[in-house]
Design a binder for these strands. Sequence first.
DNA 1: CTGTTAGCGCATTCAG
DNA 2: CTGAATGCGCTAACAG
Lengths: 355, 355
Amino acid sequence: MPRRIPVSTTRPTTLADIARQAGVSVMTASRAINGSGYVSEDARKSVMHAVEKLNYRPNLSARQLKVRRLDAIGILLPDIANPFSSELVNGMKRVLDPEGYTVFIATGNRSTRQEDASLQSFLDHRVDGLIVATRGTAMGDKALRSVVQQGVPLVTIGRPIHFRGVDSVTANHYQGAFDAVTHLIRMGHKRIGFIGIAPAHGKQLRRYQGYLNALREAGIEPREEYTVGPTEGPAFATQEDGYHGMLQLAQLHRPPTAIFARNDFTAIGAMHAAHTLGLSIPDDVAIAGFDNIPLAAFTMPPLTTVEQPIAQQGEEAARFLLERIRGRSQDRTATMECRLIVRQSTDLRLRNSHR
Amino acid sequence: MPRRIPVSTTRPTTLADIARQAGVSVMTASRAINGSGYVSEDARKSVMHAVEKLNYRPNLSARQLKVRRLDAIGILLPDIANPFSSELVNGMKRVLDPEGYTVFIATGNRSTRQEDASLQSFLDHRVDGLIVATRGTAMGDKALRSVVQQGVPLVTIGRPIHFRGVDSVTANHYQGAFDAVTHLIRMGHKRIGFIGIAPAHGKQLRRYQGYLNALREAGIEPREEYTVGPTEGPAFATQEDGYHGMLQLAQLHRPPTAIFARNDFTAIGAMHAAHTLGLSIPDDVAIAGFDNIPLAAFTMPPLTTVEQPIAQQGEEAARFLLERIRGRSQDRTATMECRLIVRQSTDLRLRNSHR
DNA sequence: CTGTTAGCGCATTCAG
DNA sequence: CTGAATGCGCTAACAG
């Protein structure tokens, strides 16, 4: 770690400054400011006046050293480029803010190394609790286990956890995918492709399992050549993946008549490829996505997709975390249901709709 | 602020624990761990061993109390739902990480109140510096001014600043918009609409000024009815705004033959409306956006747009901040050039391209 | 109601 | 090379 130079020459005002200015003891000033213990109206007033005048703000590091509480929660996100992260944070803040907790966000940028670094940083700052929404990896799990062992309250989102001491909330991705694919089958499709992951890596992907089982329950045996996608780890699938996946599937002898894409970005890439190939949607190929990103209602045609209750997951995770912080020790898990939203990319009969 | 209950029962290991375990004084342990001062190889080894064994991590709050430095930077973002925020953070981390700084992110959620709260929280935690990328508002400016007065190094991004003591970096939105509209004019358009802001609120919007001046320089007098958009403050314009804006413009007696949208989301909404109205793009109406979000290359047809160097802005801001932290006191400003990317939404002759 | 004492965990003195 | 004393800013605990 490189050398550093002192930050600032002007020291912020301290409680002692306030006490001096207000003509009371440091302790009285503290009490007045925190509203703890009894303080005479006179003393309170002059303290508050000094606070205003000197623009005083408590040094939270000092306070934390004493009370062993930072009143801050760390949130570890896979990245911040998508509406998912945003909604999640909104949900959390909705319950954390009123309780006086500050929320700090860090991202792992889909790199395990960065993820660990961010996590460690939160721990070093002694946050009061952690909400982790990054995708599961072996290395990540090890780090999380150590978090729990250190007694730091932890809640995960959208990530199956294999040890105790953790709460977790997730959406039922399996069911959502199952519903979407069942919808495609009901629309008459029998050859249904999946874009978003290489077949060999699909074991862990619940969306993919939902796809497979929907087919099987309908008596359709999944065909391996109908599954295309990135091979490198369980990464996020992008528009590019969708685009190239669609091109690849279209080259098959008997190409799929419907596509279930791992997420909306992938679906949009696939739609684009379909247009490029002169295929009309949904007549030549129906396409469904997952996540219901805001843009999904604005593609041409509007995209059938699965909506997961994102903000609610954030809220529930935050509630779980608060309970943990307050002493609950049993593990809790919440699974939220997803909702299929049918639009014209799979069903032409529908009216043009943005909902 | 509500009552809280102690966070954890198991105290993290402290330097004293390490010293005891290693059989040295606290000071020697500190020196060994921080690599400061002379420590015998023996002592160093046994300290390091104790660190491993007890899983020691320095308490940063305690350290910060002493050295008055947190080695952390606060980043205030308007929201985290878009690729812009993400790239910005990537750029910053690229320069801040190697210097040993941790980056914490907070969002204002496009609400001045939340923005102030997040800012205050960073200050209360005594971060070493602040990068603010939220949109400018009067109230926000007041808060920032006070930040500067407190001697906290501050850099803003994409936000004109009207007082001294601050560095700022921004893209040349004016020029980018000017180029885009000039391109539309060169493509033969004379009736060009702007979607994304109400005319009365456009004074502060450089993208809008670029639009106006490009028209004027080409000898085209801007027509007020060709500008449509949200009236409530200088908010972010969405797909919905684009959709409704396009519908509105299409109802005019002589509707525009080309649209310059405030950003890509707005442009995509406008494209959707055009499709709905049975207008073909770019034959009936050409559409250009701004930002070059990843999806812009995947719309139908691919969207002409303006790219701003986002990561570079993040990097430059971080560099400025480091210099400030290290003592530079002159103000610096950087303006980055934007780049027009012409795709089929304005020029059919182009090949289908994702670049 | 108010002040004094003590100590949170660490690093900067200053003596060995 | 090492250690003891000191204090960063704040608050819990105990006297007044």
